[in-house]
Amino acid sequence: MIVLDIASVVLLAAGALFVVSGGVGLLRFPDFYTRVHAAGITDSAGAGLILLGLLLRTPSWETGVRLLVIMLFLALTGPTASYVLAFAARRDGVPIWREGDPRR
């Protein structure tokens, strides 16, 4: 069991790291598209790893199944949301940041 515990702690820590880096990116990236990318990381990698970590410490299989279902739905909706945001911005002509441009 100790192996499972360690693995779950590692996964939870990695997930938390992704969430934090997503937050930092959201504040520091220069334009809309890079910020969408940062926000997408929290959804997919951050939440996914945290759910995996939790999955390793579930006491009963019912909770485990629920976590798996949540993971499935997150995997479907998170990327869709990021894609729709970026697509809408592209259609509205939001410019892409290049090296040397000011932040917007």
């Binding site: 479907l76 869709t80 729709v84």
Partner: peptide, 18 residues
């Protein structure tokens, strides 16, 4: 109408019954 957004439409149609 968000009809241009094909991915969104497919995913929404998939999730609707759920």
């Amino acid at each position: 109408d968000l009809v241009d957004y094909r991915v969104l439409r497919v995913i929404s149609a998939m999730l609707m019954p759920f």
